[in-house]
């Protein structure tokens, strides 16, 4: 099944009985506070434009109240948009009638929830087949698929346990297996790992990355954790007060934060895990010295390779193996530590 991207165009959400009437005013500059004070309506999302790439992980990041959970619920319309368009495979999701929407949810989307939202009266395997039950697929067929995915998320042997008998991490594996068994193109993950312990969270991130390398679904991942966003996201959109503050790759956000808010966010980030070799390399001068390192390798793993080989220089190669640049330890370390220039802007943000 070929993946399709999701195009969000000019999306507004205003909570309240007459939200639609206030879109124009918000467009003309009515602020969130004014809207609330004067009309008792809450501005949830304002002019969201995000293009979520097909077969990639788009991370929407923001703190609580930033509207990120509201945004993800627009993609399968658990929340009705006030204004704007969401295009998937050439169809505007906002224009679907009830029937079409149900079919869209059944076959095109699957969702993983922060608090797992498993059915407590059903066993692991019965929870996993839930999406297929809804589609009307026979248990004999759905159980086969479910067993496969339960094994893939590492829960073999727990098929007949009830959710209450499992730890949080295991419950979320069930949530993930349930979503994957649905075999849908879009995978929506609403703070899926936020309720888990740090170690288990990293573990689950690896599970997702491994599966994604093979499945190439269009994943939308919501988180409030920048490290998680940088690790998972092919593309990251940062939300604040219902507006997109910046979107781009993790590298773009770390290297050129759009404003003080994001600067303050990224200052604690381990830059060596985000910045890629090709970003800081010097153009190739004809001399292939030291170890050969792929262009998209992060500085951290590049440094590891170099020290293991006892080298201070490396040659950066593209996918085909052709040298395209060189890198030395000096440059790498300079890129890893926060540049002096951003130090001042960091102060300003505080």
């Amino acid at each position: 099944m070929a993946s399709h991207g999701i195009e969000i165009k000019g999306l507004y959400k205003i909570f309240g009985p007459r939200g639609r009437d206030h879109v124009e005013a918000v467009k003309n500059g009515l602020s969130k506070a004014e809207l609330n004070e004067r009309y008792g309506h809450v501005l949830g999302l304002k002019d969201i434009n995000i293009s979520m790439p097909a077969g990639g992980i788009t991370v929407v990041m923001g703190l609580s109240g930033s509207g990120k959970s509201t945004l993800i619920r627009h993609i399968n319309r658990l929340i009705e948009p006030t204004y704007g368009e969401l295009i998937y495979d050439g169809v505007n999701i906002c224009g679907m009638n009830e029937r079409a929407l149900r079919e869209f949810r059944r076959h095109k989307t699957a969702m993983v929830f922060q608090k797992f939202a498993l059915l407590p009266h059903r066993t692991v395997i019965e929870n996993t087949v839930y999406g297929l039950d809804i589609q009307g697929i026979s248990r004999s067929e759905s159980t086969k698929k479910a067993k496969y995915w339960i094994e893939r998320v590492g829960l073999s042997g727990f098929e007949n346990h009830y959710p209450n008998q499992l730890s949080g991490g295991m419950q979320q594996r069930v949530g993930l297996a349930r979503a994957l068994t649905n075999d849908a193109d879009i995978l929506l993950m609403d703070e899926a790992y936020s309720a888990l312990d740090p170690l288990i969270r990293v573990d689950m991130q690896s599970v997702l990355l491994d599966l994604q390398a093979e499945l190439k679904k269009t994943v939308v991942f919501i988180t409030h954790d920048l490290d998680e966003a940088l690790r998972l996201g092919d593309k990251i959109a940062i939300l604040r007060d219902g507006q997109v503050v910046q979107q781009g790759t993790g590298q773009e956000i770390v290297l050129s934060p759009a404003d003080d808010y994001i600067t303050a966010f990224v200052k604690e980030v381990n830059r060596s895990r985000v910045i890629q070799a090709k970003t800081v390399m010097k153009p190739f001068d004809g001399q292939a010295e030291g170890v050969r390192i792929g262009a998209t390798t992060t500085l951290e793993s590049a440094a590891k390779t170099m020290t293991e080989n006892g080298q201070t220089k490396a040659t950066i190669t593209d996918d085909a193996g052709t040298p395209i640049g060189t890198l030395d330890l000096q440059t790498m370390i300079a890129a890893m530590v926060t540049p002096a220039g951003s130090e001042t802007s960091k102060m300003a943000a505080e």
């Binding site: 149900r102 869209f104 699957a110 929830f113 939202a117 839930y130 809804i134 589609q135 929506l188």
Partner: peptide, 10 residues
């Protein structure tokens, strides 16, 4: 939350 999940799966 469980109801929302049921909705999300159509």
């Amino acid at each position: 939350e469980v109801l929302e999940a049921a909705d999300a799966f159509g």
